[in-house]
Design a protein around this nucleic acid. Structure first.
Lengths: 211, 211
DNA sequence: GATAAAATACCTCTTAATGGGTATTGTTTG
DNA sequence: CAAACAATACCCATTAAGAGGTATTTTATC
């Protein structure tokens, strides 16, 4: 199930840029983007979002106001403030408002994605260089792929399965025998404790091991 | 020959976002991105760029200074200032400095690309409606499912396939015969012009039809 | 150089999926 | 009320995938 992400930022290039960025993570996010508060509010009142990312200063409209207004609609939504203004009092205000994360726009994409992907809990996250006694999302999970000891070639085959290739086609593009592909698929299934390719693809998507 | 574009902005998300945006235009741009002035300067002194996009305020370093410093290296380069600060005096300053365009970050991607693609001349461009300030923009990626005439039950079955269920299991949870499930799968394949469940899942993810 | 891990490949058997049909019963809609 | 669509269900045959093995070669790694 892809996460539904709503982004509100009046910087169109930023809005489109971040949207492309998230689309290309392979996480298959459903993305709704808004550059004005009004249509964004309307959307959030009618649709449940998993993640809501917003700027603080959207066409001179206070992002905090929007968050307060939509407090009820956003109770099951991870809220992330993404802004150029990272003053301590703003961070504290966000925290009190129940915002889940406060990120500056200098944040590396990896960090943003890890915040998006971490479970919705009631902890508060902000960029590490600005933590002052605030709790930080505890773990940036090390690649699950290592945990399951999926090898390079196995990973390669997973990618091709996800692309929709059959074992025969995979054998052809990797210049190996179809029986070898079969063996790899078998080993992958054993390691991940699954028994069909749909579950494999599900696993791959959930654990973000697709590039 | 693909255009070589150099981008300098300390907002990493913006930097990466805009980079993805430009990569996905199909214009085959060569893109070098920098979040600090020093490595950017070094790059520009050694490599010729077709387009140089920079912020004015890169880690508190004045973008104008960088442009002045590199005036000689940039004589054949289209220079674009892309910034959140669009004060009149900044625009005039940029103009005097020989900058080719001054864009605010609210600029639509199309406008940026058209500036990049327009020939290098000595004219000066800035956003036409920059006094008005209100650029409204919102899109929600509309379900492609209607286009392919996937029915409610077919969609239900797609969702269960994605969950990793077999036809037998799907039949059980939907209280229908396994042959019915088979028929539905067949019809789905025909409509989407695919021939295995991996491709189906890929399609579903790409077109965001899983919720 | 020994050992472990990875990659290769085959055999056999079973189960699942796919693609070609046909056909009945509702449901919706112009 | 027809016509179109959706949902149901079965037949047939073929192909693909999955699960149990075994086994050789190549590649790291200690």
């Amino acid at each position: 199930m892809p996460k539904q992400i709503v982004i509100c930022d009046d910087h169109l290039l930023f809005l489109n840029g971040i949207s492309e960025l998230l689309k290309n993570t392979g996480n298959n996010y459903g993305i709704a983007k808004f550059s004005d508060v009004h249509s964004c509010r309307q959307h959030l009142m009618q649709n449940e979002a998993d993640v809501f990312i917003c700027d603080l200063n959207i066409n001179h409209f206070d992002g905090f106001l929007l968050l307060e207004e939509l407090k009820f609609q956003l109770k099951n939504t991870k809220t992330i403030i993404l802004t150029a203004y990272y003053e301590d009092f703003l961070i504290q205000k966000a925290r009190k408002l129940g915002v889940n994360a406060f990120l500056k726009k200098e944040t590396p994409a990896e960090e943003l994605i890890s915040v998006i992907e971490s479970g919705l809990n009631k902890e508060f996250y902000t960029n590490k260089s600005y933590k002052k006694g605030v709790s930080v999302y505890s773990t940036i999970d090390e690649p699950i792929i290592n945990k399951f000891r999926i090898s390079r070639q196995e990973k390669e085959i997973i990618k091709l399965i996800i692309k929709g290739l059959t074992s025969k086609e995979i054998a052809d593009v990797l210049f190996i025998s179809i029986t070898t592909v079969t063996t790899h698929r078998k080993n992958i299934h054993r390691k991940l404790e699954i028994s069909n390719s749909s579950s494999l693809i599900k696993f791959a998507h959930e654990n973000n091991l697709l590039h």
